[in-house]
Each structure stands twice: as structure tokens, then as C-alpha cells.
Amino acid sequence: MADLSQQEWQDQLKNDSNAVILDVRTPEEVEEGFIPNSKNIDIYLGQDFINELEKLDKSKNYYVYCRSGNRSGQACTIMNSIGFDNAYNLEGGFMNWEGEVAE
């Protein structure tokens, strides 16, 4: 897992043709806004979170975020433990996000 600053995350994402943005917040949090083109899987689903991760393409690069960066860090650790090589955590999370937001 790599922790990326907001700027590093945006720069790396912009130049990554194999990228998937993963939002691990709750549905209620997502309703308040999200990074465009992100896929939401709530980390609080427990085993179902892992089951959903298992359906994803492990050859992709995953840019993971939550509200503050804590849950997404945990999600990256889980992803690494089940065979994802490239999971990047957004430091500071969505509350510090200055990029585009969808609603």
C-alpha cells in the first residue's frame, strides 16, 4: 500500500490508463458527494466487502478513498492481503479533496 498526498494521487491517477477509483465510504456519505467515476464498496460490510473485492480485476491499479483516509488505509491493507498489488490510499480522504466532485 502507498499513501499518496492529494496532489500525488491526482497526478498519478491522471496518467494511469489502468486505474479504478474505489470509494469505501457508507452510502450515506456517498450521497454527500463523490469523486467522479468511482466505484463504491462500503468497508463496513465486513465479509461482504471482501467478497465484493474478490470480484474486482486484481491487475488494475486501485485509488482508494474514504472520508479522512483511515478506512481507505485499512481497505488497502485488506486488498494487499488478498492479492491486489497496487492499492493507493488518498491521504486526508474526501474531506480534503480539492478535485472534481459529483453528486
Rank of each mutant, 00 (worst) to 15 (best):
I50K: 02
E32P: 06
F49M: 10
D16S: 07
A75R: 00
C66T: 08
I21R: 06
Y44S: 14
L45D: 03
R25W: 00
S68V: 06
Y88K: 14
S38I: 03
Y65C: 01
E28G: 10
T26P: 10
W97Y: 02
I41C: 03
K58R: 04
K58Q: 05
S38P: 01
Y44H: 11
Y62K: 04
D3W: 08
N51H: 07
W97P: 00
A102D: 12
M1T: 10
V30A: 15
K58V: 01
L45Q: 04
I21D: 04
R67W: 03
D23A: 07
Y63I: 14
I78W: 13
Q12D: 15
M95A: 15
E98S: 13
M95N: 15
E8T: 14
G69W: 03
D11M: 08
F94A: 01
N61W: 11
A75H: 00
C76K: 02
N80M: 11
I78S: 12
N61H: 07
N61A: 12
D48W: 10
E54F: 14
S5H: 02
A87D: 11
Q7M: 12
F94P: 00
Q47Y: 07
M95P: 10
N51T: 09
R71I: 09
I35T: 05
E28R: 14
N70G: 12
S5I: 02
K14F: 15
D48P: 10
I41G: 01
Y88L: 10
V30T: 11
I50R: 03
D3I: 12
Q10V: 06
Q7H: 15
G69R: 12
Q74F: 13
I78M: 15
I50D: 02
K39F: 09
A2R: 15
G69M: 09
V20H: 09
Q7C: 11
W9L: 03
L22G: 01
A87Q: 13
L22V: 04
E29W: 05
G69E: 02
A2W: 09
N70F: 07
M95Y: 10
E32Q: 13
D85H: 14
G93L: 03
Q12P: 14
R71S: 08
N40K: 14
D85K: 13
R71W: 11
Q47F: 12
V20D: 11
L90C: 04
P27C: 01
V24P: 02
A19D: 07
N51M: 05
D57A: 08
F84T: 08
D48F: 10
V20I: 09
S38L: 01
T26Q: 09
N86D: 09
C76D: 07
K55P: 01
K39S: 12
L13V: 06
